[in-house]
Design a protein around this nucleic acid. Structure first.
Lengths: 339, 339
DNA sequence: ATTGGCACTCGCGACAATCGAGTGCCAGAG
DNA sequence: CTCTGGCACTCGATTGTCGCGAGTGCCAAT
């Protein structure tokens, strides 16, 4: 019973602080949130909560604010799912349905997510390794430099320039390209190596050595070093939460420009069906220690094609943000799955 | 003679203010910059300069700062070219020479430019219309939806999904694609319409109608609505100049996320051989009224392939920035021209 | 266990005093 | 006519003081 109310107090503190961005005191807490007890009682609970590390006070004679641990408890046990409003659902649908292109889908959804959550949104392009091959095109730039163009079933077009040890003429390249295409068409990229494994044996003898080298470079470029891409939107929203700028905003913006950092971030949390929340210090990236990340995976069926999420201040409407992230992930998954 | 010295004073004010970011007074001005006159004389000149609108004082009893008009005069008449240091030249070279890909070139150069100027850098991808066709690939997604992939001589790969009125089977598409390729290979994209004009007449009769529709959609997608792309880097540098945040930074970040705005910006100033400077109110975009833009075009020979530049505070090291922009533009132009 | 009361802390805004950088003007020298 | 030193004046920034009020912790009473 007492335990119960303490949690109510914590929930009230989180919700109030998220709205007001001001340390919340015992009086307004007892008044505004209908806990049927007096401020003094609330104070006792707050004292206990502080003892246990769920809340803290910025200075004496100020109210309390949640700690990372407090937010964590809130997210894990205290917040229900906040369903999206009808207007929001409609917005998602109308915003995304006009998309034709993969690029279009990604760009639209990242902007949408930024707009819905009023935070910085991140959307990963569908991973190459999870996609299937729809077409491979090889164009010669010089006899020893080829441009590989891979088109996947998600509509992603991936290009890569590779160097080959021995020159090849256009005609041969064309033939080899045909061979590769028939072997790989419709295959998932992760299965590509085995799909092409015995191609050379079956090929015309004069093509074999070329085919071998070509297969080697193609596999290396597309399977071993797949390039992940990411779209970002809503950085302007960072100015919304009046965090102190020079110290926090700068490294944050720098981190957001690093694809590597974002990819790591998204890569760690792209479970389907689960919205992962990383609060403050739980993030492994230094620049994100004072922010929270809400992310999930999207895709069809069992395997995740990619991940998406938002980055925002720890003082965040977690239920709302989680709902938005989940909804957008679902739509994007459907869109890219059906395509 | 007096005119001469007044301009010296203005130059000194601009240079000092750019370094210190503090209104500069007559005393330090007479001391630090070796104008061989007393502070009182400088005061007279400053008074005149203020009268003419080149400088202003934020408040009484503060030093003077340059106005947009002052910066303009400085840029037009007072600043020599500041040659890049050996280290900077080397940095440019080593930073860019490892690039393999077009994407790689653009990404590297935009980061390089941001790093050199310590400002926000913008690099436009080579315009489609200025490029020549190296290869066109058409992949069927559904019988009525095609994915066009255009590969240009600058290495840019452009994709577009188009709908066609009547279904086409894979085989026909392949044939048509071949016809298109032989007709367009090596042609500049602006010349494409005339290059394909009499293709249908020469084609096999059964292909003609399909060819006609295909040509129509291809031309529309690639020539009439060419999609420009842009890369951005260094937004973190915006926090460097301690402009007031909520009011200035937010709309600025928003504007920078709008490709349209950036394209307009770059499009207006992509002259080759001339570094264009837009100071404060000279910018047509509201959000950029308190910033300056330094930009130029890059390319080979006479025609500009694209533009690049930086966005920064009006209080900017114009000579240094202009030198960096020019140098990077030259390197990028060479790189994409030679490729 | 809960509550009302009470003393204590401390951040914050208001107000006053001071400081000093910078200006404008003027009279005198070259 | 130009330059210079001197001087009074302005005004933003800094510092210090003070009172207010929100908020806390503790305690005795229910």
């Amino acid at each position: 019973m007492l335990e119960e109310r303490r949690l109510d107090v914590l929930r009230a503190i989180v919700e109030d602080f998220v709205l007001s961005n001001e340390p919340v005191g015992s009086k307004v807490l007892a008044e505004r949130h209908q806990l049927g007890v007096s401020p003094a009682t609330v104070r006792n609970d707050m004292s206990a909560l502080e003892e246990e590390g769920y809340i803290t006070q910025p200075h004496t004679s100020a109210g309390r604010i949640p700690t990372d641990k407090g937010y964590r408890l809130f997210v894990d046990r205290l917040s229900g799912v906040k369903p999206l409003s009808r207007a929001e659902r409609r917005a998602i649908q109308s915003f995304l349905e006009g998309a034709v292109d993969l690029d279009d889908v990604v760009r639209r959804s990242v902007r949408l997510l930024a707009q819905l959550t009023r935070q910085v949104a991140v959307v990963q392009y569908p991973s190459l390794s999870c996609s299937s091959v729809r077409h491979i095109e090889i164009v010669t730039i010089t006899p020893v430099r080829l441009l590989l163009v891979l088109i996947t079933d998600t509509g992603r077009v991936e290009q890569r320039v590779v160097e080959i040890p021995a020159p090849l003429d256009d005609l041969t390249v064309g033939e080899l390209c045909g061979v590769l295409n028939t072997a790989l068409n419709g295959r998932r990229l992760v299965d590509a190596p085995e799909a092409v494994a015995d191609l050379p044996d079956a090929a015309r003898p004069d093509l074999r050595p070329h085919l071998n080298t070509l297969i080697a470079v193609v596999m290396e470029a597309l399977v071993d070093k797949p390039e992940e891409r990411i779209a970002l939107a809503g950085t302007a929203n960072l100015t919304r939460s009046t965090i102190d700028f020079a110290d926090t905003l700068r490294p944050l913006l720098e981190a957001l420009e690093e694809q590597v950092v974002l990819l790591k971030l998204i890569g760690e949390v792209r479970d389907l069906d689960t919205v992962t929340v990383r609060i403050g210090h739980e993030n492994n990236v230094d620049a994100l220690r004072s922010t929270s990340v809400v992310a999930t995976g999207y895709g069809r069926g069992a395997s995740a094609l990619g991940g998406l999420g938002v980055v925002g201040p720890r003082r965040m409407d977690y239920p709302g943000t989680m709902a938005a992230v989940q909804a957008v992930a679902k739509y994007v998954g459907d869109l890219l799955g059906a395509d």
